[in-house]
Nucleic acid binder design. Structure first.
Lengths: 137, 137
DNA sequence: GTAACTGCAAAATATTTGCATCCTT
DNA sequence: AAGGATGCAAATATTTTGCAGTTAC
């Protein structure tokens, strides 16, 4: 079965036009997407409200997740291996290029463990690295 | 000289009421502050616009910085040792407690280096750990 | 057929800008 | 006194909500 459909089915979501198109956009994007990127995904425009609701649904189901940024922008990313496995790990580093401003999931770079002070119980970590990416160097 | 004044002077900022109050708020807060926290800092309310402008000024001067979050909220933090040294390193981990929702600067926990794929040139890294903090455990 | 999803309109929030006035140096 | 900072008003932009019509199953 198509990967796209399989993701929706697995999460008990009905297969609708906007969900297919938005999810496809994520599947075809190596990095992260901002709300605006999705709204402007030229070919067919979605209603702004539908984009909000669809993203929220995907986040609720764990299909996509927010990724942290240092510049207050709001980015969403779907991470390939996690989705194929059916649940999220997101334990990889995100890289933000300061030249092209793209955000890239470095799926192969695992977030290292850190030793926290006494009493802190970590559950999840996010790491964002800024710099210049391979394309812009 | 008062630490507060020294920070403003060092950055060539005139010493005004709102700058003093907002900076003081940061100096007295162990973690991070959201825009709303500042606006609501009871005693005396600032004009919403002044808060925006003051925060922007502080960010421009490097007195405070955005910290990344995984939940799309916008947080600012001032980090003690950096400010005392006169410039920013911010190379420490931020911890977000999922019980009390506070964000804490773990000044003593340094962000580890990671090995990036060929061609990526890192300049700065941010790391956020979610979990349960010492107070809430 | 039913429950869920979408699009439109509008409300509620959040952020930015212009300008006259006030404060800091 | 001069330049910059503030507060108000208003313009923009962003996000949420209600509801009627449409679509998926």
């Amino acid at each position: 079965m198509d990967q796209l459909l399989s993701i929706l089915k697995r999460n008990e979501l009905s297969v609708t036009g906007s969900r297919k198109k938005i999810l496809e956009l994520f599947l075809n994007t190596p990095g992260a997407l901002a709300h605006a990127d999705i709204e402007q995904s030229t070919n067919e425009a979605f209603d702004r409200v539908t984009v909000y609701r669809t993203l929220q649904t995907f986040v609720d189901k764990g299909i996509i997740h927010h990724i942290p940024t240092t510049d207050n922008s709001i980015l969403y990313a779907l991470c390939r291996q996690d989705c194929e496995a059916g649940h999220h790990h997101d334990n990889h580093v995100h890289f933000v290029c300061e030249v092209c401003h793209k955000t890239i999931c470095l799926d192969d770079v695992t977030i290292p463990e850190v030793k926290l002070p006494q009493g802190f119980a970590p559950k999840h970590a996010e790491m964002v690295v800024n710099g210049v990416c391979d394309d812009c160097k």
